[in-house]
């Protein structure tokens, strides 16, 4: 700040979506480096994030993919923590019809729960599965429900001078967070000295989560599908059967597809009571308050 040098020309921004700030002088650009050489798969990050936000079961702001690789006895275990990339070119923000999700000028891609209508356009748009719809039921009913949620890079902590919760908790010390525009920062140092990779670079989303020592197979999308263990597939089917995502298109593999489509319909109808309740409450407030 206080830097009066001319700013490079920025492309046009829409609404409050600020353009990406990677390398823009005088602006902060928070980013995360995940040093996979240090990741031990303890999933402390995942739990720290869940407890920080009281997240409901079945949704994750961050998670750790696990892969077994190689054949006996030359095998390895690969871990891959995942979270929102806080992209500099966030498709999710561009596609949101109500500007409920926006890009903060310091790099955060954020969510305004009171604006979000729960249309899930951003979920469809995000190539990284970084977003989820908060279910109707959660432990603390006063926290947002039935709106889309995602990793916030813990802005509420960062703004108070503390590292994000997952970084705080990372046992291996694999997660490093900071301002990549600041040449003094640890992230800058790592970005300039180590070889890093981002997920799906070909999509041009310009992610701000960088990986050191990433394994190509676990970064690969089709691979995640075709090389699931049987156990993992069954688990996912359990998830699709039992997690009450409202009106989602969860198809249980191996079951008759049209019956599954029918079940989706039933799921949709089941949302009527709680949505009606909320609608009524809203009208009451509108009419009588």
């Amino acid at each position: 700040m206080g830097d009066q040098e001319p700013q490079p020309k920025q492309h046009r921004s829409y609404g409050i979506q600020t353009p990406g700030t990677k390398g823009v002088r005088g602006k902060k650009r928070y980013a995360m480096v995940v040093d996979l050489r240090k990741c031990i798969g303890c999933m402390s990050c995942s739990i720290a994030c869940k407890t920080e936000y009281g997240l409901p079961l079945g949704v994750w702001r961050t998670w750790v993919k696990v892969m077994e690789k190689g054949s006996y006895p030359n095998t390895k275990r690969i871990f891959m923590p995942r979270l929102c990339n806080h992209c500099d070119y966030p498709v999710c923000v561009r596609n949101c019809p109500t500007q409920a999700t926006y890009k903060h000028e310091e790099g955060f891609v954020l969510q305004r729960y009171n604006r979000c209508i729960g249309c899930r356009t951003c979920m469809v748009a995000c190539p990284y599965n970084a977003r989820h719809l908060l279910p109707e039921k959660r432990t603390d009913g006063n926290l947002p429900r039935m709106v889309v949620d995602k990793c916030t890079f813990c802005i509420h902590r960062v703004k108070k001078g503390v590292l994000p919760s997952c970084v705080q908790a990372c046992v291996g010390g694999a997660r490093i967070f900071g301002d990549m525009n600041d040449p003094e920062s640890e992230v800058s140092r790592l970005l300039s000295t180590e070889t890093v990779a981002v997920l799906k670079p070909e999509l041009g989303t310009s992610p701000a989560v960088y990986y050191i020592g990433a394994d190509w197979e676990i970064m690969d999308e089709p691979h995640s599908y075709t090389n699931r263990s049987v156990q993992n597939r069954e688990e996912f089917n359990d998830f699709k059967r039992n997690h009450k995502g409202d009106a989602f298109a969860d198809i249980v593999e191996g079951e008759s597809l049209m019956a599954e489509v029918g079940k989706n319909w039933i799921g949709y109808l089941k949302t009527i009571p709680h949505k009606a309740k909320e609608t009524l409450a809203a009208f009451k407030i509108f009419l009588f308050d």
Binding site: Y30, G161, V162, L163, F177, G178, D182, S185, E186, V187
Partner: peptide, 8 residues
Amino acid sequence: HAMELELG
């Protein structure tokens, strides 16, 4: 700079 952020 960013390492000013505290660990917790």
